[in-house]
Each structure stands twice: as structure tokens, then as C-alpha cells.
Simulated scan of single mutants.
Amino acid sequence: MTTPALRDQYGQHWPCPPIEGPDEPASDKTWLIFIPGAYTPVCMSELEHVATLADTLADEGVAVRLIAPDSAPVLRMVCDQLSLTVPFLSDFWPHGAVASHYDVLDTTTGRPKRVSLLVDRSGEVLETIESTAGSRNMDDHLSVLHNEK
């Protein structure tokens, strides 16, 4: 299996699982939100709600990481356009290695499924949200977290 090599929207390297990064401390729980394509209409509609979600989750000690198969420069453009400061990680090369690691890569399209994974500090999956049609409701991330307690 290929070792995942992640870069954030600023080109900084991140480990897998992406629980902590260059300027981001580890949290007990982290949502890994897989985005099939940063500049698609459905993904952009989801991304418009991520900043609010991330702020709310931060108050509860839960981190958010976005992961997409796009290159880091493309992710930077999306972040700049939407004023996103959440780490947006490129799973560009080796292509889809993180999505494969978490078994959420759609091998037909070469893109991750529209899935969010709640992971602990070791990267173990605690909860899953998946949308097979249309965008995820970002409030579902809060609901899952509150039902887990």
C-alpha cells in the first residue's frame, strides 16, 4: 500500500492520519470530511457551511480536516474564495492514498465518496456520515457528535 502524503492549502506536509499538523494541535476527535472535487457545485455548497461548523466544533474540542483529490494550489484558491481557514488537505499524490486508506475511494471515478469520518487521536473511525445523493447537511456532524455522548 502507498503511504499517504498530504499537503494543506499552503503546501505544508501533514501526516496520515491528519489529526495534527504544522500549526494544528491534535484534538481527541477529528472530523475528516472527504470532498470529491473542490470546485464542483455540490462540494462548493458543502464548503460554504464548513467554517461555521468548524467554529462550533472547536468550542467542543473537535477538529475538522477537509480532504480532496485536488492539488494544493486549487485548494488554496477555494479557501481564499470562501475565506476558509480550516485545513484543506490535498490527497492528490499519490492519488487517493488517504481515501484508499480509509476505504472511501470510489475506484470508478478516482474520487473519494461523499463521506465524513469522525476519528480519534489514533485515526480509528468512530462514526461515519455518507451521502449518496446530494450534499451533506453539515449540522449532521453536530448531531452525530451529540448522540455519541
Rank of each mutant, 00 (worst) to 15 (best):
D70S: 08
D139R: 09
P15D: 09
I67V: 15
D120F: 08
D106M: 08
P36Q: 00
F88V: 04
D103E: 15
T108S: 14
D140C: 07
S27V: 06
V42N: 14
H146G: 02
V98P: 00
G110L: 09
D55A: 14
E20H: 05
T85S: 15
I129T: 07
Q81I: 01
P22C: 07
S83M: 04
D140G: 00
G21Y: 03
T109Q: 11
D120V: 05
F34C: 00
C79W: 03
C16Q: 08
F34N: 00
E148S: 11
E130M: 04
V104H: 07
D120Y: 06
R121Y: 13
V62N: 05
T2W: 10
L145V: 01
D80P: 01
D103K: 15
L53G: 02
D23F: 01
G21F: 02
E60R: 15
E20Y: 02
V125Q: 07
T85W: 13
C79V: 02
E20W: 00
S27G: 14
A5P: 00
P87C: 09
K149S: 15
D59H: 12
E130R: 09
L57Q: 07
T109W: 12
T128Q: 13
G11M: 05
P17T: 06
F34V: 02
T56R: 11
V104D: 04
S122I: 07
G134A: 05
T128E: 13
E46C: 12
V104K: 05
P18Q: 08
P25G: 11
P25F: 12
L66C: 02
C43E: 11
N147I: 02
K29R: 13
R7N: 14
L126T: 09
P112F: 11
T30Q: 01
A72H: 13
L6F: 01
M77V: 12
I35D: 01
P22Y: 08
T85N: 15
I35H: 02
A54K: 01
T108M: 13
E130K: 02
S100D: 09
D139A: 10
V104L: 11
N147M: 12
I33V: 15
D80W: 06
G110D: 11
P18H: 08
W93L: 02
S131D: 09
I67K: 08
S90C: 02
G61T: 08
H146L: 09
H95A: 12
L145Y: 11
S116P: 07
P41L: 12
E124C: 10
M1N: 12
E130P: 01
T52Y: 10
K149R: 15
V74P: 00
S71A: 15
S90Q: 03
L6M: 03
V86L: 09
A5F: 04
V74C: 04
A99R: 00
D28K: 08
S71Q: 13
G37S: 11
Y39H: 13
P94A: 12
G134H: 06
H146W: 11
R111A: 07
D91P: 04
P18A: 12
F92T: 01
S131P: 06
Q9V: 06
P25C: 11
T56N: 10
P17I: 07
M77F: 11
M1V: 12
A99E: 01
G110V: 06
E48K: 15
D55G: 10
D8W: 04
I35L: 04
T56H: 10
